[in-house]
Amino acid sequence: MIVRIMGEGQVKLDNSHMAELNKLDDELLREMESGDQAGFRRTLYALLDAVRRLGSPLPDDALEPSELILPAPDATLEEVRRMLGDDGLIPG
């Protein structure tokens, strides 16, 4: 799976890591719904760090179609809310 982190680039990520990412995504969704700004920021960083840690960055000149687009680390709660689908940022 190819994941784009807005403002950073793309990462190739094995589908076997989706359970870990979905857990963080669910936590992020709960924090957004409750308005927990500090928790939202902490979990967004943890989600993006997990993608970076578990994946392999693609070269900057690679233009692969992204199957998943995640917000930039400095995205606001409202910006992320606009990106959400029914299942959060990560489907499944």
Rank of each mutant, 00 (worst) to 15 (best):
G9S: 07
V11M: 03
V11Y: 04
V11Q: 03
K12R: 01
D14T: 12
N15Q: 15
N15M: 15
S16C: 15
H17K: 04
H17Q: 14
M18D: 10
A19W: 06
A19L: 12
A19M: 13
E20L: 12
N22A: 07
N22W: 05
N22I: 06
K23E: 12
D25P: 04
M32A: 06
M32C: 03
E33C: 09
E33Q: 14
S34G: 12
G35P: 07
D36K: 02
D36A: 13
Q37W: 08
G39F: 05
G39I: 04
R42G: 10
T43I: 06
T43S: 03
Y45R: 05
A46W: 09
L47P: 01
L47V: 04
D49Q: 03
A50Y: 02
R52A: 09
R53M: 11
G55W: 06
S56K: 04
L58Y: 05
D60W: 02
D61M: 13
E64I: 05
S66Q: 09
S66Y: 04
E67Q: 15
I69C: 13
P71W: 00
D74H: 11
A75V: 05
L77F: 08
L77D: 02
E78M: 11
E78A: 13
R81Y: 01
M83Q: 06
M83V: 05
L84G: 02
